[in-house]
Design a protein around this nucleic acid. Structure first.
Lengths: 142, 142
DNA sequence: GTAACTGCAAAATATTTGCATCCTT
DNA sequence: AAGGATGCAAATATTTTGCAGTTAC
């Protein structure tokens, strides 16, 4: 298991076979710095509109393809992304951790140290992945 | 605990204080008939474009408000809705069951009889709700 | 009859695509 | 130098809002 936190932006991009461009470096940096998940709009704000919307879309897309970030399921129709922490490779995500959305501040966290519970499916169903989406109040807002 | 399956469309609408209009009756009927979750686009197709897009948006919205249906979190940014099965009332949803998305056919099911596992949050976090989103192959596609 | 609901038009927002130019290697 | 990435323009898709006409009760 590698840990992105200990690697630099450049290492991660190289390892994924991506060229080192300004937008990729800065956007990846935002994820490394941020303790919670980021939406497209967050990145726009963080970058001070330095990048074109389209560039952000394409950058997020390729990061997902390369296994650098993953999307977080949500009920509110807003796509948020977070760093993959464990052994993700291109096309194969393994982010079976618990996601937590704060009802108050809207922040979304990946709870790495919270175990994914066992799920028992009905007969005939084949399980591939389990996502757990918890909501309530985060430690800042409680 | 009431069970919508045993009630008619009319009963449900009346109980929720909604007037009995064509679109509401037909859209609610789709949910009662369907074994899996429906997206806005599914309803458009099912109705044969009988209703305006806007009417569908507004109908789904008020059904959610009244606790008749609930949104299902998904990683693919498509909002799907399903009937609330347990004691939901206006503004208070309690649909803590497991949702299952089939990777093959895309169908989304509510697994009523699958227990929601316990989730242990870090210190300072207050839990309100847990959604479990499982994916894999459904019994038709496995 | 009145309040609420629907349909249409249009605005606002979100996402995708094509292409010329620029940057990384 | 060559291939890939970006920025801009524009197409497409999604969701929201306002308002006038219609319907439920």
């Amino acid at each position: 298991m590698h840990c992105f936190m200990k690697e630099g932006v450049t290492d991660i991009l190289k390892k994924s076979g991506l060229s080192l461009t300004d937008s990729r470096k800065r956007i990846l940096h935002f994820f490394l710095e941020s303790s919670n998940a980021l939406a497209h709009s967050d990145i726009e704000k963080l970058s001070g509109d330095q990048f074109d919307r389209v560039t952000i879309y394409r950058t997020l897309q390729i990061f997902v393809e390369k296994g650098i970030i993953h999307t977080i399921p949500s009920a509110d129709n807003a796509v948020r992304y977070a760093l993959c922490q464990s052994e993700c490779s291109a096309g194969h995500h393994h982010d079976e951790h618990v996601h937590f959305v704060c009802d108050v501040c809207g922040a979304t966290f990946c709870l790495q140290h919270t175990a994914i519970p066992q799920v028992q499916l009905p007969n005939g169903f084949k399980l591939r992945q389990v996502d757990v989406l918890a909501s309530g109040k985060c430690n800042q807002c409680a």
